[in-house]
Design a protein around this nucleic acid. Sequence first.
DNA 1: CCGTATCCTCTACGATACTG
DNA 2: CAGTATCGTAGAGGATACGG
Lengths: 118, 118
Amino acid sequence: MARKQSAPDCGLHAALAVLGGKWKPAILCELHRGPARFGALKRQVLGISEKVLFEQLRELESTGVVLRTVLDPAPPKTVEYSLTPAGAALTDAVQTLVEWGQHHVRIRASAPQSSIAS
Amino acid sequence: MARKQSAPDCGLHAALAVLGGKWKPAILCELHRGPARFGALKRQVLGISEKVLFEQLRELESTGVVLRTVLDPAPPKTVEYSLTPAGAALTDAVQTLVEWGQHHVRIRASAPQSSIAS
DNA sequence: CCGTATCCTCTACGATACTG
DNA sequence: CAGTATCGTAGAGGATACGG
């Protein structure tokens, strides 16, 4: 995604360009708990493929929310990914949305106002 | 979007399922300014096609953030779309993200830390 | 004016295998 | 372990035309 939008409504556009996509939320969520290596992320995020994990990581890196650090350049090199201050601020800003989501789910679960699911 | 995710990290999943997609943010942004008719939205959101606008509107309606009201059932019928209380709460919750986005953009504009856009 | 149907494109995402 | 390359797929989104 991160396609070009006709009218950049606001900063929302920028924010969604960063945490948009199928896996970025999960990745950010993991990194929010602390730094992690590539393999660790791959294991924690589950269903994700190496290729996609990498792409997402590079995008997150290029948007300045994730930091890539090479711990050991030796053949079986180890690299660590962590949140930048901006990334931390983002995951923090997202909390409001998280709460809305949780609340929203509960409301709809108890009071179905229209035909939603079968 | 609204695809199935391996691990519903949190309420974020729910929130993104609602404002995910290419146009929903823009649509929600417009409705945030007040109720609008189909044609009005079509005009304001610009690049969007009727089909997509409709799909998005229906999804927003089914997730309970947008309300559809038929004002005049007569042949050239008029319909109005507006935010439900939940929708208003959402656009409000999103403000934090908007601010982050705006701030983030300014930071990166003044201090490019890596190669981002061309 | 509002809504629906059809068809087509584009790209994010997926599976896998290989190199340093 | 980390990163790259290749090939394939599904589905969101786009253009357009018709119907109530």
